[in-house]
Design a protein around this nucleic acid. Structure first.
Length: 387
DNA sequence: GGTCCTTTGAAGACT
DNA sequence: AGTCTTCAAAGGACC
């Protein structure tokens, strides 16, 4: 496996990459190890952005991320530099322009049987082989069956759909040709348990205000994990998918318990069958959160999601590029699968209506209120900054 | 019971 | 084209 910069330790710890964490007053951010992970992260993100948006507007994406990152203390003034550096250090991981598409297409696909390495896979092995199930197995709760190559129930020509403009997906047959448990082969370097992100320190780096006195004993048992996801969320095609929400009835996974169902009473009240709500596919960070939430809860005896998410956000930044790449790849596959399952779906479907009538009964007025609140909030912050 | 909080990323809406 | 906004998950806190 080509050595990535993470091991080099050179150029460690651009100081300003830690700004956002320092504000928290946490010691962990001072650890050097994090410094290089931060850098790696920047590299990864840059690479991912460059690759995934290569046909779009890399600059726009970079700008946007730059803005966001800046807010999050993830300075992008280094990004250009990092891009250049990463391409050199990657040993080829992202250097080849021969693959205008997603970078991971060059990677040995852990989803494939034998985890066969693509011809170009000598460039990287982001994924090492493991012997057991990958923790991320849980992130793809779909039954393995529907990962069979070229599911016959899927439209063969997705381009037939109209009204939705989506980039043409690549042939997914390879991506979803999974052996039983194949998804779980991704693995290995994901040893969060053995490699605490903030070694020597409490894994719980959250604001004091978020600390909880709640007992931790129940944390794990209570936590709904996607691993436990059953075959709920059945798509009309017969494909179970977590993104789809049946119009009636209760799915057996907590994932669908909240804000996604027509309540029984409502279901009765509404005789017209509601259109199943198809949720957005989860992005990389969401997948990561789902995977790691239980762990954080157990470690930190926290239950408050806001606090947990803060921790997860920091851990996400502390992940190495390889670790993050797995989630980005998973998210990409998730999107592709989602796209194939629901070719006419658009994120817009869940806009404005706010999943109206499903659970939240959000009205457009509510949506507008929320929008207004958010705007006001931003204005407030701007005002504060200007002072 | 509804909304907020809090995170990142994707995508649609808006300017 | 660039920026802004919403939504995705989660569950306690708050009104």
């Amino acid at each position: 496996m080509p050595q990535l910069s993470s091991g080099g330790g050179d150029d460690l710890g651009a100081n300003d990459e830690m700004i956002s964490f320092k504000d928290e007053g946490e010691q962990e951010e001072k650890i050097q190890e994090n410094a290089f992970t931060e850098r790696d992260l920047a590299d990864l993100k840059s690479s991912l952005v460059n690759e995934s948006e290569i046909n779009q507007s890399p600059n726009a994406a970079a700008v946007r991320r730059g803005q966001q990152s800046e807010q999050r203390g993830f300075p992008d003034k280094h990004r250009e530099h990092l891009d250049g550096v990463s391409k050199q250090q990657d040993g080829g991981m992202y250097k080849s322009p021969a693959y205008p598409g997603y970078p991971f297409l060059m990677l040995p696909d852990p989803y494939l049987p034998n985890s066969s390495v693509s011809p170009s896979s000598n460039k990287v092995s982001v994924v090492q082989q493991s012997h057991g199930m990958h923790p991320l197995t849980s992130l793809l709760p779909y039954g393995n069956d529907h990962f069979s190559p070229s599911p016959p129930h899927l439209p063969t020509d997705m381009s037939q759909k109209t009204g939705v403009h989506r980039h043409q997906s690549q042939d997914l047959s390879g991506y979803y040709s999974l052996p039983p448990g194949g998804v779980g082969q991704i693995t290995p370097s994901m040893s969060w348990q053995s490699q605490p992100v903030y070694p020597g320190l409490s894994p719980c780096g959250f604001r004091q205000s978020y600390s909880s006195n709640l007992p931790s004993a129940s944390s794990y048992s209570r936590f709904p994990h996607s691993l436990m996801l059953g075959t709920s969320g059945m798509h009309p095609t017969g494909i179970p998918h977590p993104a789809i929400v049946p119009p009636t009835g209760k799915q057996d996974h907590d994932q669908y318990d909240r804000g996604m169902y027509v309540k029984p009473q409502e279901a009765k009240r509404e005789k017209e069958p509601k259109k199943p709500v198809i949720k957005k596919p989860l992005n990389a960070f969401m997948l990561y959160m789902k995977e790691m939430r239980a762990k954080v809860i157990a470690e930190c005896t926290l239950k408050e999601s806001a606090a947990i998410n803060q921790i997860l956000g920091r851990r996400w930044h502390a992940l190495t590029r390889e670790e993050q790449a797995k989630y980005y790849e998973l998210a990409r596959k998730e999107r592709q699968l989602h796209m194939q399952l629901y070719p006419t779906w658009s994120a817009r479907d869940n806009y404005e209506a706010g999943l109206s009538g499903v659970a939240g009964e959000k009205s457009k007025a509510d949506w507008g209120k929320k929008k207004r609140r958010k705007r006001e909030k931003q204005q407030d912050s701007n005002t504060d900054n200007s002072l």
